[in-house]
């Protein structure tokens, strides 16, 4: 099947491997990612203010592109996913807001939240199916103890994201099991890494990240996987002494599509 794909700015720069392995894994699992044309940066963080119109237009354009192709819109980066999904939600549910947005884009067809937005993880769970992923695994991960790190953006606000139980999610844990590894449950996996505050107050981000790494290790983690470039940056920068990798990279390894030069 073919789906629309929104990579986002970071996946074309600092997080190229997240992007690359997303393509490779999808191909192996029978899904073709079609990058939408002329996408613009989502802005990284969703403004909840009802009078913030302009900052949501790039997301609306991406959503319209998917709608016009009658495809679901797939995101990988947690930041993009959160912004686009929340934007789609207000376009569906806040008539006044949607009207304002549509007036901004007067020459185009009105958009009222018709597109469906999936995170790559949801694509694996709900479209491909974890049982199919498991069947496709050629290099099972040998019971390695892996901690999934969700951060805040994938799960909250739950009323909009509706991905999983926001306080005890299992979508990444199920993926870890499907890849033949052992998921490590730790409570801080849905706490914030510090996010963008890393830019101007790195100390604050350090505290947040340390809370997460410490908790994951205490519960037995040998590796952390994440979907978000900023999470990965914060965890790595703040002294994670166990590997922190993108979940698509690990999936590529399990599916046997990871290239040799990446050093396995």
């Amino acid at each position: 099947m073919k789906v629309s794909y929104f990579p986002g700015c970071t996946l074309k720069n600092k997080a190229k491997e997240l992007d690359k392995y997303s393509y490779l894994c999808a191909e192996k699992l029978g899904v073709t990612l079609e990058e939408i044309e002329e996408w613009q940066c989502c802005g990284g963080v969703f403004s909840t203010a009802k009078d913030e119109i302009a900052s949501k237009l790039s997301s609306v354009r991406a959503l319209k592109a998917a709608k016009s192709k009658e495809q679901p819109l797939i995101t990988v980066c947690s930041g993009c996913h959160n912004v686009i999904k929340q934007t789609n939600y207000v376009m569906q549910n806040d008539k006044e807001f949607a009207d304002k947005v549509n007036k901004y884009m007067a020459e185009e067809e009105a958009y009222n939240g018709e597109a469906e937005v999936y995170n790559y993880l949801e694509l694996l769970r709900d479209v491909v199916g974890f049982d199919k992923v498991k069947e496709a695994v050629t290099n099972p991960l040998g019971g390695k103890k892996i901690a999934a790190y969700y951060g805040c953006l994938l799960l909250r606000p739950n009323s909009v994201m509706k991905m999983d139980d926001p306080e005890n999610p299992k979508i990444m844990e199920d993926l870890i099991s499907a890849m033949g590894a052992e998921p490590v449950i730790y409570a801080n996996r849905n706490e914030c890494c510090g996010g963008y505050i890393a830019l101007e107050d790195p100390k604050a981000a350090e505290k947040r990240s340390n809370d997460i790494i410490r908790n994951a290790k205490a519960m037995g983690a040998e590796m952390i996987i994440t979907a978000c470039p900023l999470c990965k940056y914060n965890l790595v920068k703040n002294g994670a002494d166990i590997p922190v990798v993108y979940f698509t990279e690990l999936l590529a390894e399990a599916l046997g599509v990871k290239e040799e030069k990446d050093g396995e």
Binding site: Y186, A187, N188, E191, R214, N215, A218, M219
Partner: peptide
């Protein structure tokens, strides 16, 4: 304590 618990983190 007048307040609410926000999070419980099992560790060790």
């Amino acid at each position: 304590v007048k307040g609410m618990v926000g999070k419980v983190t099992p560790e060790g």
